[in-house]
Nucleic acid binder design. Structure first.
Lengths: 206, 206
DNA sequence: CCAGATATTTGCGTGGCGCGCATATTTGCG
DNA sequence: CGCAAATATGCGCGCCACGCAAATATCTGG
C-alpha cells in the first residue's frame, strides 16, 4: 500500500524538516529563510508551505514524526513481548540515520551540539516542540492502551506510560547533547533511560 | 515599590491580552488583526509588539500571568498554612474579574464558551499555551520547593506538586467551558479540583 | 499500455506580521 | 523644577503564510 506517491511525500517532508534543522543549527533561527530551506530540500518555496505552516513546525516535525513512528512501531512488535522491551525497541528503531542526514555534511559534535542548544532555546520553537510532544504522547498512549488492553477513557495507566516513555527519550537526547566529543552513543542512552524507567526509577546506590 | 509606571505597564499588558482573547473569541483567530487589538486596548499598533511578539503570545499571556501570580501569591500565604490549602487559595485569588474584563461587554455564556473552544483548537495557539504552562509550572515548582524546604535539583516532589496544581486549574477551566448556561461557578470548580488532587485522587464511590 | 481521474508542485499576488530605528512623550528623582 | 531614564509612537523593510489557477506527476481501470 506504500506507493511511490506516499514515499516521495515522506521523503520530501523529511528532507524539508532536516534541512530546516540543519540550517538553523548552523546559522541561527532567523538567519534562515524559508527560501533557503526549500532550496536545500530541492523544492520550490511554495511547496514548503504545502508541508508546514511555519519554520518552527518544520523543525519540530522531525521529533514529531519520530515519535509517531515509535507509536506505529510499537503496534508492530510481537504481542507477547513485555511492554517496556517493546517500547525500547520501538524507540530505538527510529534513531537510525536516514539518507537525508547522510547527504548533508554536518559539523563536528561539539559545534553541532552547541547549535542545537541555541536552537532549542529559541522561544518561537519551544511552543511548537511542546505541541508536537503532546500530539505524539496522545498517539503513543493510544497504542499502549491497545497493547495492554487498558482503557484510555478510564485508566491513567496508558497516558502515564506514554509520558514516561516520552520523557525517557527526551532525557536521553538532552544527555546526548550535553555529552562531550566523542558523544555517548544515543542507542545506549535510550536503552539506559528506558531500563531505568521500567525499573520504577529506584534511588541510585550512593 | 509599585510605582505608576509599573502599574500602567501591567494594565496595558492585561488590556492587550484581554482584547486579544475577546476579539479572537468573537471573530476567530485570523479575522483579528494586531491593529484591532491595539485599538481595543487604546494603544498604537507598534506598542503591541513592545509587549508581545505575536498574537498567540498575547492570547496565552492571560493564562501565563495568572499562573505566575499564583506562584507569587503562594509565597505570600502564611507559612503555617497547609500546602494544599495555600495552593488552593493562591489559585482562587487569581480568578476575580479585573476592570479590563468588565469594561468590554461579553456575549452570553454558551456563545462565549463555544468561541473559546474554537480558539483553543487553533493550532497556532496550542504551542504558545503549552509554552506558557511550562514556564508557569517551573515558577510554581520553585515556590513550592521554597515553601516545603525541598530541593528542586534532587526532589521530584515540587515539580509533581506544580504539575498537579497546574492540571487542577486546567481541568477546572475546561469543565467550566463545558458547563451549560448558567455556568458552574469557577471558584467552586477550582476548589473541588484542588480538593480531589490533595486527597490523592481516590477512586470515586460507585 | 493508454487515457482519464486524482494528487502534487509551482508561480504569482496579496495582506499582514515582526521588529529595528529614530523621535516624541511620559514618569521618576533629586 | 529640570534632567535622566523609561516608554509610546511613526515609519519602513524584509519576510511569511496562504489562496488561486495552471502545469506536472502519479494512479487506476480497461
Amino acid at each position: 500500500m506504500t506507493g511511490l506517491r506516499e514515499r516521495k511525500k515522506a521523503e520530501t517532508r523529511a528532507a524539508l524538516g532536516w534541512a530546516a534543522i540543519h540550517l538553523t543549527v548552523q546559522r541561527g533561527f532567523d538567519n534562515v529563510r524559508v527560501e533557503d530551506i526549500a532550496e536545500a530540500a530541492g523544492v520550490s518555496p511554495r511547496t514548503f508551505n504545502n508541508y508546514f505552516s511555519s519554520k518552527a513546525e518544520a523543525i519540530a516535525s522531525r521529533h514529531l514524526d519520530r515519535s509517531l513512528r515509535t507509536a506505529a512501531a510499537l503496534r508492530e512488535r510481537p504481542a507477547d513481548e513485555p511492554l517496556w522491551a517493546a517500547l525500547t525497541q520501538a524507540a530505538l528503531e527510529q534513531f537510525t540515520r536516514g539518507p537525508e542526514v547522510e547527504a548533508m555534511p554536518s559539523p563536528p559534535h561539539d559545534q553541532w551540539a552547541a547549535g542545537v542548544r541555541t536552537m532549542l532555546a529559541e522561544p518561537a520553537l519551544q511552543g511548537e516542540r511542546l505541541r508536537a510532544v503532546a500530539i505524539a504522547e496522545a498517539e503513543l498512549a493510544a497504542a499502549v492502551a491497545e497493547r495492554t488492553g487498558t482503557d484510555l477513557a478510564t485508566d491513567m495507566y496508558p497516558r502515564l506510560v506514554a509520558a514516561a516513555a516520552s520523557a525517557a527519550v527526551a532525557v536521553a537526547m538532552q544527555h546526548y547533547l550535553d555529552s562531550a566529543d566523542p558523544p555517548a552513543p544515543i542507542e545506549r542512552l535510550i536503552t539506559d533511560a528506558f531500563t531505568q524507567v521500567a525499573a520504577g526509577l529506584p534511588a541510585p546506590p550512593r
